[in-house]
C-alpha cells in the first residue's frame, strides 16, 4: 500500500458556530464546532479544515478557544485559516492546537508571510490557499482574493508555483466555478496544478455525489478531496464514500 488519499470535511466558523449548521444523524441541526468535528473524526475524516469567516479581533479569540477545544478531543490533523495576516496570527493558532495554517489573500499582498511562516513552523505547516476562476476570454485560471470578490490578474498555475517556491508545503485550491454547483471537481485545473508543482494538493469545490470524488481521485494525482455541504447536509456519508472509493481501487484509510 501507499499513502492514502485524504477526505477532508471543511467547517466555516462564524461567531463560534458552524455556519449553515450541520445536519446529520436524522437531520438534526448541529452548530457546535467541537460536536461536529468529533462526529466527522468518528465517521472517518482524515483531516479537518476550519475556516474562520469572522472579521473582528474579539471573534478571533473565540476561534482560538474553538481550535483548543477541538484539538483536545479530536486527534486528526487540523488545518486552520481565514484572515491570517501575520506570523503572530499563525503562532496563536498553532499554540491553540492547529497543525497547519492556510494563508490566502494575505499571501498575495505580502508573499513573504509564507516564507516567514515556513521558517518558523516548517513548510509542512504552511498551506497556500488559492481561489481560482477560469477566464474564458483570456483563457487562464485567475486568482481571486477577499473571499473570491477581487480578481488579482495572477495566473493560478504560476501563483501555485510561486507559493511553493516561497515555502508552502501544501496547496488548498478552490475552483470558484465548481464551488456550490455540485457538478463535480474541476479535473482540468487539478491536472494542470499537479503537473506544475510537487507538493500535496487539496482539491476543493464541486463535490455533489460519490462519483465526483472517484473521478477526481482516479483522474488526477491530488492528495486530498475537500467538501463541505454534501457532508454537512448528510447527502454523502463519509463511511459509505470511503468504502466506495476503496472498492474503486483508490488508496483509502478505512
Amino acid at each position: 500500500m501507499t499513502l492514502a488519499k485524504r477526505i477532508v470535511p471543511a467547517l466555516d466558523i462564524k461567531n463560534g458556530q458552524v455556519v449553515k449548521g450541520v445536519q446529520f444523524e436524522n437531520l438534526r441541526s448541529v452548530g457546535d464546532p467541537v460536536t461536529v468535528a468529533k462526529a466527522y473524526e468518528q465517521a472517518g475524516a482524515d483531516e479537518l479544515v476550519l475556516l474562520d469567516i469572522t472579521a473582528t479581533l474579539e471573534e478571533r479569540d473565540t476561534m482560538m478557544t474553538i481550535v483548543n477545544a477541538i484539538s483536545s478531543v479530536v486527534f486528526i490533523p487540523l488545518t486552520v485559516g481565514g484572515g491570517i495576516r501575520s506570523t503572530q496570527d499563525m503562532t496563536r493558532l498553532i499554540k491553540a492546537g492547529a497543525d497547519k495554517i492556510f494563508v490566502n489573500s494575505a499571501a498575495v499582498k505580502q508573499p513573504e508571510l509564507i516564507t516567514k511562516g515556513a521558517a518558523i513552523f516548517g513548510s509542512q505547516a504552511i498551506v497556500g490557499a488559492i481561489d481560482v476562476k477560469w477566464e474564458p476570454k483570456s483563457k487562464f485560471y485567475q486568482v481571486y482574493v477577499a473571499g473570491g470578490t477581487q480578481p488579482t490578474g495572477l495566473n493560478a498555475i504560476s501563483w501555485a508555483k510561486e507559493m511553493v517556491a516561497l515555502g508552502a508545503g501544501e496547496l488548498l485550491v478552490t475552483s470558484m466555478d465548481a464551488d456550490g454547483t455540485k457538478n463535480g471537481y474541476d479535473i482540468d485545473l487539478y491536472q494542470q496544478l499537479t503537473e506544475a508543482v510537487s507538493v500535496p494538493i487539496v482539491a476543493s469545490g464541486g463535490a455533489g455525489k460519490i462519483e465526483d470524488f472517484t473521478a477526481l481521485l482516479k483522474q488526477t494525482t491530488v492528495d486530498a478531496a475537500l467538501a463541505a455541504s454534501v457532508f454537512h447536509l448528510g447527502e454523502i456519508a463519509l463511511p459509505q464514500l470511503k468504502q466506495t472509493l476503496k472498492k474503486e481501487g483508490v488508496a483509502i484509510r478505512i
Partner: peptide
C-alpha cells in the same frame, strides 16, 4: 516519480 517529499498523510 509520483511520491512527494515530505511524505504527508496516512500510510499503512
Amino acid at each position: 516519480q509520483g511520491y512527494k517529499v515530505p511524505q504527508m498523510g496516512w500510510n499503512q
